[in-house]
Design a protein around this nucleic acid. Structure first.
Lengths: 189, 189
DNA sequence: CGAAAATTTGACATGACTCAACTGGAGTGG
DNA sequence: CCACTCCAGTTGAGTCATGTCAAATTTTCG
């Protein structure tokens, strides 16, 4: 069990049997129904989630009440409000489930323990965060240099098959356009 | 000498005398004139730069030849095309100097050596990348939820005093708008 | 089956872009 | 030190991408 997350770790580091056992002793798991909120804006993010099955989204709600999705996390992706997780301050984002979802997760303290007992995890998360940084940098560049249509195609590539699983309004929210406009775009194709 | 970068390291880790000496033995430095290109899109990013004085920018040029600035790096900031730096692939961004600039920098190999000899640096860069990730996440959210005017105010807060030092067209490029439109915005205030 | 939510469609509004002309420094060379 | 050029910034007119609002239609799900 937990193969998926171990595979994920092994993308950047290799673990021996005892290390695997140790991580597994820290891992928690949970099944949540669609629409369950795992983290609410303003609360403190104590956990970092890994999605085994289903799909999470992380979003912020602006002054006018409009939601803006920062990331989807389908199978094999992680989700966390990093700033809150590390500083203990209030979360900027909300995380909830777009489908019935199974997550593995680690508490803040567990992650600190991991860094201490298995320093390789410093390396894992260094690489992991570096990759995340690159991802967001690119998406930011896309937002300021590409049209909504181009970004829509990129979304389809980045999350293959996800389009069929979630509501269009969520895709629009991720792309930074209105659901109405996305509908028009799709009609044109 | 090199106090500024040591202070930067000590925001996340503490170093003893021998460790400091070791880092310093790896550090390179360079003074470059305004407009000097430190990294060209398509080349391989071999170095990570820390700005002691002056200001760098990192940008991508789109199909139509328009430049889009991802980050400014004034004193105390870092600049690197992370993806290229770690994978050895071609750089997506170009880095050049907006003013006469003094940089300290580390080569790819030096950074790997650092990870090996002073594992604390894994930690430093983990935290550093996590912070960067948060920054880009927030800016992305701002891009899809705020007007150009609001983003302009945020820029002024994030880079105090920088506005007086660089050309307006660069600010526009950072904000994701045209220089012409920024000019109109400023007139309205 | 029926209610609520998501999507589509159409008319109109607007933020931001394009193009082009004009203004005003900043640097250069004679 | 002047004259010239060149680039940055401004201004205005017209345009386009995307947004807003509201009604009609389809889908979802209890």
């Amino acid at each position: 069990m937990n193969e998926s997350i171990l595979k994920n770790f092994e993308r950047h580091i290799s673990l021996d049997a005892s290390e695997i056992e140790y991580v597994q002793s820290l891992l928690l798991s949970k099944k949540v129904k669609k629409n369950t909120v795992l983290l609410q804006t303003g609360d403190i993010s104590r956990y970092i989630y890994f999605v085994e099955k289903g799909c999470l989204r992380m979003y912020n709600t602006d002054d006018k009440g409009v939601q803006h999705i920062v990331t989807f996390a389908p199978e094999g992706w992680w989700s966390v409000d990093l700033s809150s997780f590390y500083t203990g301050g209030p979360a900027f984002y909300t995380i909830d489930a777009l489908e019935d979802t199974e997550v593995l997760f680690l508490s803040n303290e567990s992650v600190e323990l991991l860094y201490e007992k298995v320093p390789k995890f410093e390396r894992f998360f260094r690489i992991f965060f570096a990759n995340g940084l690159v991802l967001y940098q690119r998406r930011m560049t896309a937002l300021i240099s590409q049209s909504a249509e181009e970004r829509y195609f990129q979304f389809q590539k980045r999350y293959p098959g996800l389009e069929q699983r979630i509501a269009q309004k969520h895709i629009a929210s991720y792309l930074g356009i209105t659901p109405v406009f996305l509908s028009m775009l799709r009609k044109r194709l």
